[in-house]
């Protein structure tokens, strides 16, 4: 290192450009403060467009708007009274909840198990890992089509492979709900597995090595170390799955249209039948608004749980 620069100093002369000419331009405070808002304006406008539709939908819930009644009148809470007094609503809500609990539960257990198995990075695991995501990327409605073909009692491959004959009906009154849950599990277990696997791989290795040296058992390490640290990742997956299950439509609709009877009629299918099939817009909107409230409250609650778990895991991770 030398103290002068080869006879020519880099910053000898003042800039030849106009940098110093005249007073520097000033930007008023309000313009500075407005920047983030300006950047968000297009997004906000777009949201307003959609929110407009949303509030329009909320407005429908206090009307008696239907295709058969093109000149709707204000009816107050009549729709709510009707929907909440309708056994079908509660039946649909129960079906939705059962669907969500069964699917989310199975997907979580299987997803965590698959993540743990793949984390062993055996040759077989590595070979298949890239293919894990495939069912998740297929449109749920197409997944429904695929499974509908496989469920077919006469020609479906499942009855043939399992030797169930041609009378076993996967979508019968007793089995339909479990079958549509099975399809959900097929699609979304990879979602849980991928998130949890990424979580496991981002965990610090030191605690495991330390307790390995201490001779802790596998189960102890899993319960005391891995599970608490993985918990936030599992929760993210569970939250996404549970919320999505509450509004499930595509795969169930194509498989059963909510039947047989109302055995697989979830809330969104119920609302679809009211507003699209029966063209009773107000009733369908009321269904949807009630579902929206459920989703919203659940989301707020679960996000709170997640925040808590993340803070706790941050403590456990040290």
């Amino acid at each position: 290192m030398t103290t002068t620069v080869g006879g020519r100093r880099p910053t000898e002369e003042t800039p030849p450009g106009g940098a110093r000419a005249g007073a520097p331009p000033r930007i008023p405070d309000w313009r500075r403060k407005a920047r983030p808002y300006l950047l968000s304006v297009p997004a906000v406008l777009l949201i307003i467009g959609i929110l407009y539709a949303f509030f329009y939908g909320v407005y429908y819930t206090v009307l008696d708007y239907a295709a058969t009644n093109p000149d709707p009148q204000f009816v107050g809470v009549a729709n709510y009274r009707e929907v909440l007094g309708d056994p079908l609503f509660w039946r649909s809500a129960g079906t939705t909840l059962l669907y969500a609990v069964l699917a989310t539960g199975a997907e979580t257990v299987l997803g965590v198990a698959i993540a743990l198995l793949l984390n062993r990075s055996s040759l077989i695991g590595k070979t298949f890992e890239r293919l894990l995501i495939l069912p998740l990327m297929i449109a749920p409605v197409i997944a429904g089509v695929i499974w509908k073909l496989m469920f077919n009692p006469q020609f479906g491959v499942l009855n043939h492979v399992f030797g169930l004959g041609s009378t076993f009906d996967w979508l019968s009154r007793d089995r339909a709900l479990f079958s549509v849950v099975l399809v959900d599990v097929w699609i979304y277990t990879p979602f849980v597995a991928i998130l949890v696997l990424a979580g496991i791989r981002s965990l610090p290795q030191e605690p495991f090595e330390a307790s390995d040296v201490d001779g802790a058992s596998w189960f102890y390490m899993f319960r005391r170390l891995m599970l608490p640290m993985m918990w936030p990742y599992i929760l993210v997956a569970v939250i996404f799955r549970f919320m999505d299950c509450l509004k499930v439509f595509d795969s169930v609709y194509v498989l059963t249209q909510g039947g047989p009877g109302v055995t697989t009629t979830t809330l969104q299918i119920s609302a679809f039948q009211d507003s699209i099939t029966n063209l009773n817009y107000s009733r369908g909107s009321t269904y949807m608004f009630l579902l929206w409230i459920i989703v919203f409250i659940t989301a707020r609650y679960l996000v709170g749980v997640l925040g808590k778990a993340q803070r706790r895991a941050a403590g456990a991770g040290v």
């Binding site: 968000s40 997004a43 429908y60 949807m288």
Partner: peptide, 29 residues
């Protein structure tokens, strides 16, 4: 900035909102 978190949460709520809530009015619109 004020409202940024609201904006983000609004976005997230779209992700979880039941589609039919907006579809019926959108159909009319």
């Amino acid at each position: 900035y004020r409202g940024s978190e609201n904006l983000m949460f609004q976005m997230l709520s779209f992700r979880f909102a039941p589609e039919l809530m907006v579809i019926v009015p959108l159909f009319v619109i």
